[in-house]
Simulated assay, not measured.
Amino acid sequence: MAKLFAFFYDMLMSPLEKRWIARVRKKIITDLEGEILEIGTGTGANFPYYSKEKVDRLVSVEPNPFMIDQARDRALENGLKVEFHKGMAETLPFKNGEFDTVIATLVLCSVEDPHKVFKEIKRVCKQGGRIVLFEHVRTESRSLASLQDFLTPAWKHLCDGCHLNRNTGRYMRESGIEITREMKYFKGIFVELEGINR
């Protein structure tokens, strides 16, 4: 299933990427600088938007080896030097306070334990460092949220563990990260979140 998901992911996401997601990626990534950890890199969709002048070090963690292969190709296409690690976000293989910024886009829906993931994000991000997220989440619309709840069991099986109804913003707040910016799209189905590690 992991190989099949990796093969079709970019094709399935292409319409949304072209319509607006690529613009969001560009907006939240272009100004990132210093030492950056990207959690759940996937096929490397964020790579075209990093500034080679501003990024001192870019580190990727991704559990799907087939997606890592595609991300390596995309890094080469964009002339981007990336350190790739196969691993889970719940157990990051890095030192405390190693990164200036931690970023994740459209990935925290599929982690097994979001509480552990945010604990790890806080651990590896420097005090005062940035946490930048773009995720799809449980919607504010009651009727659409009920539909998300209904679809999630089958959706998780088809889409590599993706939870349509995950309230990622709540997990972020509960972790103690200070949220400094929040922007919602489409009745809150998608959200940009930026915070400071306190």
Score class of each variant (00 low, 15 high):
L106H: 05
V107Y: 07
F118R: 14
T91F: 07
F118V: 04
F99S: 07
A104R: 15
G97Q: 11
G79K: 03
E98R: 03
I68F: 00
P93G: 04
C109I: 15
M88N: 14
N64Y: 07
D100T: 09
R74N: 10
P65L: 12
F66L: 11
A71K: 00
N96M: 06
E120T: 02
A75F: 00
P63Y: 01
G87Y: 04
R72E: 00
L92Q: 04
E83T: 08
L76H: 09
R74Y: 01
V111P: 07
K81V: 13
K95E: 07
I121F: 10
V111Q: 13
T105I: 05
K116I: 07
A71S: 13
V117K: 10
E112C: 03
G79Q: 06
E62H: 07
K95G: 06
L106Q: 05
N96D: 14
L106K: 12
G87H: 06
M67R: 05
E62I: 04
F84G: 00
K119I: 05
F99C: 05
T91V: 05
D69Y: 12
I103W: 13
P93M: 09
P63N: 09
E90H: 03
I121Q: 03
V117D: 14
G79D: 11
P65E: 08
K81P: 04
E112H: 10
I68M: 01
T101I: 10
E62G: 11
C109R: 15
L76T: 12
S110M: 12
E62S: 10
I121N: 06
V61H: 00
T91C: 06
E77S: 13
E112V: 12
N64M: 12
E83Q: 11
E120Q: 08
R74F: 00
L92G: 02
E120V: 03
V102R: 10
E120K: 01
D73E: 09
E77V: 10
P65Y: 10
V117M: 11
A71C: 08
P114A: 15
L80H: 06
L76D: 02
H115S: 14
P93H: 04
N96G: 02
L108P: 09
P65D: 07
G79H: 04
L106M: 15
H115P: 09
K86E: 13
L76C: 03
K116C: 04
C109K: 13
F66Y: 15
E77G: 08
K86Y: 03
E120N: 03
K122L: 14
D100K: 08
M88G: 05
F84M: 02
L106V: 09
V117R: 10
I103L: 13
L80R: 06
D113I: 07
K86M: 11
P114W: 02
V111R: 03
V61P: 00
N64V: 15
D73G: 13
M88E: 06
K86F: 01
L80D: 02
P93C: 08
A89M: 05
E90I: 06
A75Q: 06
L108R: 14
F99M: 01
N64S: 15
E120F: 05
S110E: 14
H115K: 15
S110V: 15
V82Y: 01
P114M: 13
P93L: 09
K86T: 09
E83H: 09
I121G: 05
L80W: 04
T91H: 14
F66K: 01
E62Q: 06
D113Q: 10
G79C: 11
